[in-house]
Every structure is written in structure tokens, then in C-alpha cells.
């Protein structure tokens, strides 16, 4: 029997949201006299809650516990500046030095940070990996993954699982140090369970010159904070933004000659 021909999808008449309610002014419906975030009056949040509390509420719909707020704040400090060698910061710094419009600096850095290599995409993949495996024995899992994997034949870094691997052929000490700090800060609580699991996981990886990568740290923290993978990926971009901006703005005040320009003899055209 011939099916009913349906040529149009059903589109909603209104945009819907569970996040934000705006109460219109009586004399002008385009203006809001009160706003509520997940039911809480904005003015009450301003008065009684921290930026971290409200940020967590915005992305999860819930106010954080004290330990959750501490963990999120510590992660935000950890990721605040990825440093002038990180590709995202470098992209924004290059834009700064070449006098790109100031308002484009952050978007340029964030687009670079959106990559699959050490970027926001990795955070989402890593969160999925951690969600799937954080109830497994980390040492057995690490050994199993290693036994099934082989070092890539193409030279470069080896990412054994999303968020875990080598950096410049070695273990990146900084994310590994941060992971220990985060787990120690909340040592007596269950709040950093996934980070602690990751620390056990990398114990096995270390002998292969593999360890935590920054997106893995962010991913594990977001899992511990009960944040969804897509939200975690986007939040990673948000929390890495200050460093991107600061480095880019610093360069924007300098002459274009203050950054190296690769000379002809070091530009090799291969065919």
C-alpha cells in the first residue's frame, strides 16, 4: 500500500527552553522585568550565589554541592590558560599580532580548540570513554587496551584512549600533576571518583610513556560533576577562553615583527 506522502517536517510555533524564563513588562512585552534561571530569580542568585554556583546551575539545572563547586572552580583554574604553545592560544596570538579585529580573537582561538587533537571534541569522546569504563577495574582495562593496541606506525603521539596518551613522545607532567591535586583536594569524598579512577588507569600506562592529557582531566572532572558529554565539550571551550584572550590581546599591542616569520630557507616545498 502506498504510504501517505508527507513533504514537510513539523516545526514548532515557538522556541522552547527549560533554562530561562522572562516575565514581560505589562506595558512592553519585548522587555523583561524579571528573569528566572531554572526557577530561581536572577536577583536572588546575584545576591546569594557565586559565579561558579550559577555556572553549574546553567549547564546542569542544579545548584552544586560545596565539593562540586570546589571541583569545578579548581578545574577552571587548571584550564584557564593552556599556555602560549597550545595551538588554540597560538592561533589567537597569531591573529593578535597580525592586527585582526579584537572581537575575532576569541572565536579564532575557540575554533582551533574545537579540534579532535587535544581539543573540545576529545573531551566529549573522553567523557564517553570514562562513562563506559569507569566501573571497570582500571588496571585490567589499561592492560587489555594496551595488549590490543600497537603503537601507531606513523610517527607522532600515541593516544591510547580519548584523553590519555603521550605528548611530544612523552608523559605530559602538568595534567598528571593537576589530576593528583584534584583528587587530593577532595580526597575524603566521592566527588572526584572518576579522576581517581583515571589516576589508577594511568599508573599502568606510565611505563609506555603515556599519561593524562588535558582534555582527559576536563572530561573526568565533568563526569564527576554529572555534566553530559556534549555540555562538557562546550564547557571546555568556555573555561579555556581566558588564556586564549589574554595571550592574544598581549600580542595585539605589539608590532607584527615581534613574532617569528619562518624564513625562506626553512620553508621546504615537498612534492
Amino acid at each position: 500500500m502506498k504510504k501517505t506522502i508527507k513533504t514537510k517536517l513539523s516545526f514548532s510555533k515557538k522556541t522552547k527552553t527549560k533554562i530561562w524564563y522572562e516575565e514581560p513588562c505589562h506595558n512592553n512585552p519585548y522587555l523583561a522585568k524579571k528573569c528566572r534561571l531554572y526557577g530561581y530569580e536572577l536577583t536572588e542568585l546575584i545576591e546569594k550565589k557565586s559565579y561558579i554556583d550559577v555556572l553549574y546551575l546553567l549547564f546542569s539545572g542544579k545548584l552544586p554541592t560545596k565539593n562540586q563547586a570546589i571541583l569545578l572552580e579548581k578545574l577552571m583554574i587548571s584550564c584557564m590558560n593552556l599556555g602560549p604553545r597550545h595551538p588554540a592560544n597560538r592561533a589567537a596570538m597569531t591573529a593578535g599580532i597580525c592586527k585582526t579585529r579584537t572581537v575575532h580573537l576569541l572565536p579564532i582561538g575557540l575554533m582551533t580548540l574545537g579540534g579532535e587533537h587535544l581539543g573540545a571534541v576529545t573531551v566529549e569522546q573522553s567523557m564517553q570513554f570514562l562513562n563506559n569504563h569507569c566501573s571497570d577495574d582500571p588496571e585490567i582495562l589499561a592492560d587489555r587496551i594496551l595488549s590490543k593496541s600497537s603503537h601507531p606506525t606513523i610517527k607522532g603521539d600515541w593516544h591510547i584512549a580519548p584523553g590519555f596518551g603521550s605528548r611530544f613522545s612523552g608523559i605530559d607532567p602538568l595534567p598528571n600533576t593537576i589530576a593528583l591535586h584534584l583528587s587530593n583536594i577532595l580526597n575524603d569524598t566521592k566527588c572526584a571518583q572518576t579522576i581517581k579512577w583515571g589516576n589508577q588507569f594511568v599508573n599502568i600506562l606510565q611505563s609506555h610513556q603515556l599519561g593524562w592529557l588535558m582534555p582527559g582531566i576536563a572530561a573526568a572532572t565533568f563526569v564527576d560533576l554529572d555534566i553530559a558529554p556534549r555540555e562538557g565539550s562546550a564547557l571546555f571551550q568556555l573555561i579555556c577562553s581566558p588564556g586564549i584572550l589574554a595571550h592574544a590581546l598581549e600580542q595585539s599591542h605589539k608590532p607584527v615583527t615581534d613574532m617569528p616569520f619562518v624564513e625562506d630557507e626553512n620553508y621546504v616545498i615537498t612534492q
Partner: peptide, 18 residues
């Protein structure tokens, strides 16, 4: 396409206090 407040359908938690 200017939007009035009521052009957005709020489907979340009702008003609550801290």
C-alpha cells in the same frame, strides 16, 4: 524577527527560592 518575552515557551521548573 524581534521576539517578545512570550514568544519563547518556558518549559522548565516553576519559580522557587534559594
Amino acid at each position: 524577527l524581534p521576539l517578545r518575552c512570550d514568544d519563547i515557551s518556558y518549559e522548565g521548573i516553576k519559580k522557587r527560592s534559594l
